[in-house]
Every structure is written in C-alpha cells, then in structure tokens.
C-alpha cells in the first residue's frame, strides 16, 4: 500500500495565485473548521485559549519579502498545504501502510486507524505539509477535502476544498491537472505555474502562480524621501521662514 501508484487517472490539486493572495488567513481558518468536523479525528489543539497555544493545521500562510536587484521590495503571502506529490516521499517511508496515494485521483491520505504516529512521513516531506495531531497522536494532512469534493449532499458549488470555497480574493483554484483542458491546467500554462523545490524530485501536483511583473518606477516617480526631499521650494514663504528660524 505504501508503494506509489504507477500513474493516477486524475491529478486533483490546487493552483494558488501568489499575485492575488492578500494573506487574510480565511482559507486557514475554514480549513481548520471543516477538517475538525470532517474526515478522521478532529484537528486537535493544546492550550487553545491560553498563553501558549499550539495545534495541528493543514494549511498555513507564510509571508515573504522579495527584493529584486533593481526595484523596490515586494511582499508575497504564501499559503502552504500538502502538494499531493506524484512521487510523494511521505508515502513510501510509511512502515504501516497508513499513508497512501489514491490511484483514482492522486489524493494523498492517511488512514488514521493504521497510523502509529512515528512521524517519519513528516520528516520525509520537504514542505512541512504534515503535522502530528497533539491530541490523537496520529499524522494529519490536507485531504483536499475528500469529504466535500465528492459529497452529493452538498450544493454543487460547495463541492470544492474548503480553502478554495472560502477564499474572498479567488486566489485558490481546484481542478484536475491530468486534463490539459481544465481551468487549472490552462492557468498554469498561461501564467507559468511553478513547482516548489523541484530539486527534491517530489513532482508536486499543486502549482503556484508567481506574482505578475511589476512596472518599474522611473526616477521622477520614485516615492518621496522624507529626509532629503522635505525642504521647502527655494524662494517660497516657507523657505524664508526656514531660513529665518535657522538664524535665531
């Protein structure tokens, strides 16, 4: 079971648009909310309302600063969850068969009743996509909301992962990467979607769309420097006041 399928019929996953994400953490919160009542054991917390809270989350948002050589720095909010890799190293290291990748849709899941909580899968993942539940002591990870996407009791519009459904900026998209005509495949092609740490040879399914190029500010449109640019125009009234006050 912990051998990876040779290929999967579908390759379900997410596209995350780093140009659009505003870092509001709504996907993080809705992920926790849905998954604490959905597939498997609840997502546990320790000291949730105390001074040192800690708990299992399947999606977290980091914020990075990019400084180009010839332009001002820019901020990128960076949501990170399981990438459902084609060559998932977390699956093959599992000693019990609890970790597996589904041959029908490529989703990587943990059978929590079989998990011994050894943590080796979390060590094998370069992305930090797996977290041990502090209450149940089993490994938790993104299920791509497997209990939503096929759930016919939900309205069709809700049959997407909770993070995608809730994103107010529509920075997250869900679809089948095995189908070149799917929206996600087209987006990745058009915007040159990127893999995280390709050198780890995990072949992640989830893709990230890099921020669109910014127009470079020209010299005269450069933001005013308060220190050097704040002296009044020569010959003006304020310039006269400035000079008079200097003399006192």
């Amino acid at each position: 079971m912990t051998s990876l399928p040779a290929s999967t019929e579908k390759k379900l996953g997410l596209v995350i648009d780093l140009d659009i994400c505003v870092g509001c953490h709504a996907c993080v919160v809705n992920c926790k909310e849905w998954n604490t009542g959905g597939y498997g054991a609840p997502l546990g917390d320790i000291d949730a309302y105390g001074s040192n809270p800690s708990g299992a989350w399947l999606n977290r948002i980091h914020t990075f600063e990019i400084t180009p050589e010839d332009a001002p720095a820019q901020i990128v909010h960076f949501p990170k969850s399981c990438l459902h890799c084609d060559d998932a190293p977390c699956v093959t290291v599992c000693p019990t068969g609890a970790s597996y990748k589904r041959s029908e849709d490529g989703i990587v899941l943990v059978d929590e009743d079989m998990c011994i909580g050894c943590g080796l899968c979390a060590w094998a993942c370069p992305y930090g996509a797996r977290e041990m539940d502090p209450v149940e002591n089993v490994m938790k990870k993104c299920t791509l909301c497997v209990d939503r996407i096929y759930n016919e009791n939900l309205e069709e519009v809700d049959r997407v992962p909770a993070c995608v459904r809730t994103c107010p900026a529509e920075a997250r998209h869900f679809g089948d990467f095995a189908d070149p005509q799917s929206d996600v495949s087209k987006m990745v092609k058009e915007r040159r979607g990127i893999d995280l740490m390709p050198e780890m040879e995990t072949n992640p399914i989830n893709k990230y769309l890099p921020p669109r190029p910014k127009s470079a500010p020209t010299n005269d449109k450069r933001p005013r420097n308060v220190e050097t640019d704040s002296s009044p125009a020569p010959g003006s009234f304020l310039d006269w006041v400035d000079r008079m006050l200097e003399k006192i």
């Binding site: 980091h62 914020t63 600063e65 180009p68 960076f78 370069p126 995280l196 740490m197 921020p211």
Partner: peptide, 16 residues
C-alpha cells in the same frame, strides 16, 4: 522553497 528566487532575494517576513 518558495519558487520565487528568480524574482530577487527572498526572505521570510512573517511566520504563519
């Protein structure tokens, strides 16, 4: 790790 290295120097600004 972020796939953003081609755009410039990348550093963590804020943890999640």
């Amino acid at each position: 790790a972020t796939g953003l290295g081609s755009l410039g120097q990348v550093r963590l600004l804020e943890r999640p």
